[in-house]
């Protein structure tokens, strides 16, 4: 049983990462990651929606038929996103002012429908919520890495304006890595997003290859699989 949850964690965070392995959800990924803080905000908001939609879709999975499942899932996801949008606007207004732009974009994130279709519609509630959380965490990880790469090269800073997103306690995260940097515009603009994404994908493949060439690290997951 534990192995199953471990597999969900590993898949969501790394081996089946939405952006880095499945290359899904590239539209919000490239649009939002001009800074690490923006990527973090979008990632957290998406993770929240993924957890809720995973649990809700898993709850209704036994009454929904194959023929109408797609409209039902789309309806549920759009409803959840709208509710999250309204609730944040009313009760988490400071955060909404920073993230508000990104939230309606979450509806168009195909990763959410993808997880609903391939996981939540077939698995129990707890596993689906965990899968949502881990997929969301993996998405956040990918967005923060991409945002950090683009921000460092493009503006010479890291986590600039993080305190706007997370509150004044997190102002220590804001770093100016290259003082008096004139900026490299290309990396901030959308083409830079595609360029950086390409290098990040290459980086992930290189790490995977390195891991695969080490027998000791490979044997551990293999026994996991055998026991499961």
């Amino acid at each position: 049983m534990n192995n199953r949850y471990l597999a969900i964690v590993r898949d969501g965070l790394w081996s089946n990462n939405v952006v880095l392995a499945q290359t899904l959800a590239l539209c919000p990924t490239v649009a939002v990651t001009s800074s690490a803080s923006n990527g973090l905000g979008m990632g957290l908001a998406t993770a929240a929606v993924l957890v809720i939609s995973g649990a809700v879709i898993s709850l209704v999975r036994n009454i929904v038929t194959q023929e109408v499942r797609i409209p039902v899932f789309v309806l549920l996801i759009a409803g959840i996103v709208t509710l999250v949008d309204m609730a944040m606007n009313a009760w988490l207004h400071e955060l909404y002012k920073v993230l508000g732009l990104f939230i309606p974009l979450i509806v168009t994130n195909c990763a959410i429908l993808g997880r609903a279709e391939s996981f939540a519609s077939r698995q129990p509630v707890l596993a689906s919520a965990l899968d949502g959380l881990m997929t969301g965490a993996g998405f956040t990880l990918a967005l923060v890495i991409l945002g950090a790469v683009r921000e460092v090269i493009g503006s010479g800073t890291l986590f600039a304006h993080a305190s706007l997103l997370l509150g004044p306690h997190f102002s220590f995260m804001e770093m100016e890595l290259i003082p008096h940097y004139r900026g490299f515009l290309l990396m901030v603009l959308p083409p830079g997003g595609f360029l950086a994404l390409g290098f990040v994908l290459v980086g992930k493949r290189l790490i995977d290859r390195r891991l695969a060439s080490r027998p000791s690290l490979v044997s551990a997951p293999a026994t996991d699989g055998a026991m499961a």
């Binding site: 209704v60 929904v64 109408v68 309806l75």
Partner: peptide, 10 residues
């Protein structure tokens, strides 16, 4: 059933 399901969820 599909119609009722879809309508009900909507």
């Amino acid at each position: 059933y599909h119609a009722v399901l879809l309508g009900g969820i909507a």
